[in-house]
């Protein structure tokens, strides 16, 4: 660190970030892993639900309402509530379960909207040519719905990163740890490090997935 940088780092309260960069990186990685694990499980849950809802339209009202209701529960309440449940308790498992629940409404809704948006003429052609239900889903419907589904994944990822901060309160680690520790130790530089890390993670995720989304949208509309 050059001596001329010192006053700038100090006035911007970046001291913790610079001196404890390894620690910040560790928290960043914890947060990233938690997000990825939650997102992956959330997708595994959301796809069957979304496909089921798009096949049986009667389910759409009840299931979307139920998922919406879950989404409105304050995250801290849900995290604390799950501490009381055996096998979940404190820690990363607790956070992942809660994050999976919050991501459902976003993912399921986008999967359903994406599948609904497939041109009915295209589907009829697929049916008329003798494609079975699974073949239509895998070869026609899901590829064409992919841009909308990826948009859902992007929003869900950013939401998970945000709620993941609160999860530090149930010992799930992550960048929230820096924020809450910084507050309790009255150490502003630590808070800044946590805030910058979370912002970077959310921002990069958003940009990266948006690029994927555009690329896929061009490709499935046959314009690449």
């Amino acid at each position: 660190m050059t001596p001329t940088m010192e006053p700038i780092i100090s006035s911007l309260k970046l001291k913790y970030l610079v001196t404890h960069f390894g620690d910040v990186l560790l928290r960043f990685r914890e947060h990233l892993v938690m997000t990825l694990v939650a997102l992956l499980i959330a997708l595994l849950v959301a796809f069957p639900i979304g496909i089921l809802v798009s096949r049986y339209r009667r389910l759409e009202g009840p299931i979307i309402s139920a998922l919406n209701l879950l989404y409105t529960i304050p995250s801290l309440a849900l995290l604390v509530l799950f501490i009381t449940i055996p096998f979940i308790g404190l820690g990363t498992d607790n956070a992942v379960v809660v994050l999976v629940i919050y991501a459902q409404i976003i993912l399921v809704r986008n999967i359903v909207v994406g599948l609904k948006g497939v041109d009915p003429d295209v589907l009829e052609a697929a049916r008329g040519m003798g494609m079975g239900s699974a073949q239509r889903l895998l070869q026609i419907e899901l590829p064409l719905a992919l841009p909308v589904i990826i948009a859902g994944i992007r929003i869900a990822a950013v939401t998970i990163i945000g709620i993941g901060i609160v999860a530090a309160l149930v010992n799930a680690g992550g960048l929230g740890r820096l924020l809450f520790d910084g507050v309790s130790r009255n150490y502003p530089d630590m808070i800044v490090a946590g805030a910058l890390g979370a912002t970077a993670l959310a921002g990069l995720t958003n940009v990266a997935l948006r690029l994927v989304e555009r690329r896929v949208a061009l490709s499935v509309s046959g314009q690449d």
Partner: peptide, 14 residues
Amino acid sequence: GYVIQQTGLFPHMR
């Protein structure tokens, strides 16, 4: 063979 009005071609396939 089945041919429909708006062609029903699959837009994501060559």
